[in-house]
């Protein structure tokens, strides 16, 4: 029963990822890593003997521990990579805000010069 539940969870995560990409709620590059996680869930869920063999080869007595450690590690890697992506996005926003302010400064300067020119031509 546990195997079925784990396998079904993997399939559910995969279906959710496909749905989110289809609805343009998630970029494909972010979806790929989640699809890999979902595939591992499904694989170890429907074929638990693979997990047992992996646990034996790693010298772990209780095989679900391997799944938990691998899953936890994958989540940490995903969380750190998300923060890297977020930092990059924040830097891009910072650069854009700065660029916008620079352009606005130029517009203000040109408007001021135009006003002065207009004033001078009126005075003549």
């Amino acid at each position: 029963m546990t195997e079925l539940f784990t396998g079904a969870t993997g399939l559910f995560v995969a279906a959710t990822i496909v749905y989110l990409i289809k609805r343009d709620r998630l970029q494909v590059r972010h979806g790929v890593s989640w699809m890999l996680v979902a595939a591992l869930f499904a694989l170890f869920g429907f074929a638990p003997s693979l997990l047992d063999r992996l646990a034996v080869s790693l010298g772990v007595a209780y095989s679900p521990t391997v799944a938990l450690v691998v899953g936890g590690s994958a989540l940490i890697i995903k969380a750190v990579s998300s923060d890297v992506e977020r930092s990059l996005s924040e830097v891009k926003i910072t650069r854009l805000v700065q660029r916008l302010a620079m352009l606005e400064a130029d517009i203000r300067r040109l408007e001021k010069h135009a006003d002065q020119d207009h004033q001078e031509s009126n005075d003549r």
């Binding site: 805000v97 916008l100 203000r108």
Partner: peptide
């Protein structure tokens, strides 16, 4: 002065770098 008006707050270094 020339004025660079930020649409959102970037903090001391973000403003300085602008």
């Amino acid at each position: 002065a020339y004025v660079l008006p930020m649409v959102t707050q970037l903090g001391p270094w973000g403003a300085m770098q602008a």
